[in-house]
Design a protein around this nucleic acid. Structure first.
Lengths: 145, 145
DNA sequence: ACTCGATTTGACAACCATTCTCATCTTGCT
DNA sequence: AGCAAGATGAGAATGGTTGTCAAATCGAGT
């Protein structure tokens, strides 16, 4: 079961609502907004560049802080690339995983009752509680082959 | 299907065979050997400490280099902790995943045809090739609950 | 055993993503 | 407007990891 191409297309209307329960400041809104201009994973630094390039003046530290807020509140997904950097992307609400293209970064959100069930079962079987898991699938997408 | 507690117990006899195709130097053997004194994931720095504490004089850079060699040749597993650090552990040959205890680090190797099959299917379904994936399950083990 | 070239090592500098500091600016509220 | 809590930004500080390069080591051939 996969959600057929929920490609998470960019949304258009800029947001004006509070961000992660904090104050809806210019900067936070700016960050929240760039996040909706792309559908794949970007590093904090890239996001910062996007902002400054588009004229928004937001400090790097603030970008990191905001991204963390958003991540904590579940508004964005975080994944660690193979070299340990964190990459962010706004995400839909449900729990899911990602199929990421190694060369272009194109991402497809995938969902799998199968895995969820499996991890829970495995964990329980070994007496582990409070289960959480991370699963990323890497490959080369059709366009990049 | 899980391999029932393949806890990867420490092995006893020190190794003297080549390491990852390179020269079997004192340092490399030393690293390869500490790796077999524990069964859970340790950071490169921890491994370095273990070495120096036990009297072995191996440079930190060398530990990193060796660990990378071993990882490339598939002799050790690498996983990224949630804060982006790399953790290493010698591994059995087969492809598998880990169930890691959040508080004590106890690790259980798990294996799952289910997931393997699932990821392959998903990927193919979206036209991705050369699939690889990472899956880590985190939880609190029985002893730590 | 001895030599020589290729590898490897180690001490330390360099990197780089991320976090911290803290003085200054904003926001929300009255 | 006025204030206190919260947020920002510039830059310093951290900390894991990688790069540098001269000196040490390995091992194949003699």
């Amino acid at each position: 079961m996969t959600n057929t191409e929920p490609k998470t297309e960019p949304t258009t209307e800029p947001r004006t609502t509070p961000v992660a329960g904090g104050r809806p400041t210019k900067q936070r809104l700016a960050v929240a907004n760039v996040l909706s201009t792309f559908g794949d994973f970007r590093s904090a630094q890239e996001i910062h560049s996007l902002l400054t390039d588009s004229g928004e003046k937001v400090g790097l530290a603030t970008v990191y802080r905001t991204l963390q807020l958003l991540a904590d509140s579940g508004e964005v997904d975080v994944l660690r690339t193979e070299d340990g950097e964190a990459a962010y992307r706004r995400c839909s609400d449900s729990h899911h995983h990602h199929l990421v293209c190694r060369s272009c970064g194109a991402t497809v959100e995938v969902e799998g009752p199968t895995v969820e069930r499996w991890t829970k079962a495995i964990a329980a079987e070994h007496g582990y509680r409070d289960i959480s898991h991370t699963l990323e699938i890497f490959g080369t997408c059709a366009a990049c082959s």
